[in-house]
Design a protein around this nucleic acid. Structure first.
Length: 275
DNA sequence: CCAACTACCTGTTAGC
DNA sequence: TGCTAACAGGTAGTTG
């Protein structure tokens, strides 16, 4: 599942191969991939000039030279494949675009949770539909103290708070479980019952885990294929909690437990995640 | 206003 | 073998 590190790998690949280029053609092959768009996408997108690619949390967008943005969310299974025309052959190609640098971009998305949206931006260039998304923990302007204060003001469980994209963005189920394991915090603990230093430790753990995943996933993006499988492909051997049900905890040896929580699976060590 | 819950989607796997 | 159910989960919208 693409979370922040995987989306950043995709962004880097797109920035390398599809910056300063104009859209020549566009086909929407599945309407759900462009849900919420006013009017057909193709005639609005053709002729637009992409200046670069930006990201906030799991939201990705192409900055256009007229102040608009082509916002992309990969959902659970979205992939952005860049190559020569005809390179992508998946039965799940949802949108196909050709650019004047000779490259083709295909949006492939098996489960159709992802989408593209051509939209307005604010004065800072952020797409309007992504304005409610908080800065992510790898953003240079991310404020740890301010974020910790907001998180600690919540009565919800600390895991729910980590997944709340309006407080801290980019964290999904995998990195939430990994960060809570690293910080020794029980996922169901209400956020307000944690000390300030515990929350700050947790934020540092999120940053550390994501930096490591980014380093592991960002090794091979100079090929034309823009890989989004960072967590499942490169980083899976480093996981300490997520998907480790029944495996001994790397810290204390207790079998990792899996529980249904907030309609999601949660993996944690019942012995050493006690905060 | 806040927190919790549900719909949306499809390929894979487990169980009978 | 063939069917059904569970499972994966980010976001938006709804409910309490």
């Amino acid at each position: 599942m693409p979370e922040l590190p995987e989306v950043e790998v995709v962004r880097r690949g797109l920035a390398q191969h599809l910056s300063n280029t104009t859209v020549l053609s566009c086909e929407v092959l599945h309407p759900r991939a462009n849900r919420g768009q006013e009017g057909p996408l193709a005639p609005q997108l053709i002729g637009r000039h992409i200046t670069g690619w930006n990201r906030r949390g799991k939201f990705l967008w192409a900055a256009l030279d007229d102040g608009h943005a082509l916002m992309v969310h990969l959902g659970m299974s979205g992939q952005m494949i860049v190559g020569d025309p005809g390179t992508a052959t998946s039965p799940h190609i949802r949108i196909r675009v050709q650019c004047d640098n000779g490259r083709e971009l295909c949006f492939i998305d098996q489960r159709t949770f992802g989408r593209w949206l051509l939209c307005d931006t604010d004065v800072e260039g952020t797409p309007v539909p992504a304005q409610h998304i908080a800065l992510d923990p790898l953003d240079p302007s991310f404020n740890e103290l301010e974020t910790a204060r907001k998180m600690r003001a919540s009565k919800a469980s600390i895991k729910s708070v980590l997944l709340n994209q309006s407080l801290i963005s980019g964290v999904g189920n995998i990195y939430a479980d990994e960060s809570l394991w690293a910080a020794g915090i029980k996922p169901t603990r209400p956020a307000y019952r944690l000390r300030r230093r515990d929350i700050l430790n947790l934020i540092a753990a999120v940053q550390e885990v994501m930096q490591r995943a980014l380093a592991a996933g960002g090794t091979s993006f100079d090929s034309l294929y823009v890989n989004v499988n960072g967590a499942s492909g490169y980083f899976s051997r480093s996981l300490n909690a997520y998907g480790q049900t029944g495996e001994p905890c790397a810290r204390c040896g207790t079998p990792i437990r899996r529980v249904a929580f907030a309609n999601r699976s949660t993996h944690y060590c019942p012995t050493c995640q006690t905060l």
